[in-house]
Design a protein around this nucleic acid. Structure first.
Lengths: 116, 116
DNA sequence: CAGAGTCGCTACTATTTTAGAAGCGACTAT
DNA sequence: ATAGTCGCTTCTAAAATAGTAGCGACTCTG
């Protein structure tokens, strides 16, 4: 990223543009954390809401809908009874996880954890 | 990140906690993009505001202050005349860039650019 | 059996965050 | 002199997030 402009004749995007594109959704509160939780395996709505400290139902619902619409996660309804909805990473979502893992590693090494 | 719980006896943080910690600031709109721009070298306020499509002055100002307070960037005032303020990544900020670079790479490969 | 609980949301209100633009003082350029 | 730049700040407006009650469809408990 030292050179923001790629000098290839047919490339008209920059790395900063790419970062901006990723952070269109990653820079919305909770999206990365939701994805991070799903990297541990498929989960239901309430499972996620319990696991993610601090998120409200309404925002979780909106995030899941956005992430599903963006193709990063899938939403599967098992008709039941009882009806059950499961969210899981898609291939696209999964492909982001190594990079998010790098961020988590960075945070572990560089950001003070709250008192343990 | 397949295992969210690290089973070491003295580790009481999880990778999801670490991700949540990083996204306390990365999940606020514009922070990552600001950092990404500064990875190309130090810059002034107006330079950043021009380079970052869509950011308002007030938010840029707040973001720069937060990132400086968090130790990710430095703010240097050259007294002038004319007075000049320069923002640059700190070592801490710089150490995050490889991970952000991974995200940018992912976005280049996986997210459709707007029409070029 | 009735009431309480779970699920996955939705709908509403309240609060917080972001956006947008005018304006400041200190300067420089025309 | 006016207009422009700089790095903000201040205000209002719009958008996003937070919080919670409640829905219908179910299951569990006493």
């Amino acid at each position: 990223m030292a050179a923001n402009v790629q000098h290839s004749a047919d490339a008209c995007i920059t790395a900063s543009d790419a970062l901006a594109r990723a952070f269109r959704f990653l820079g919305k509160r909770w999206n990365a954390v939701v994805l991070g939780h799903l990297s541990g395996g498929p989960a239901g709505f309430r499972e996620l809401s319990r696991a993610i400290d601090g998120i409200s139902d309404s925002v979780l619902s909106a995030r899941l809908a956005d992430l599903a619409a963006g193709g990063l996660i899938s939403r599967t309804v098992e008709e039941g009874p009882p009806v059950a909805v499961t969210y899981a990473l898609t291939d696209l979502g999964s492909s982001l996880m190594p990079a998010l893992g790098q961020i988590a590693l960075w945070a572990e090494r560089n950001l003070p954890a709250d008192g343990c």
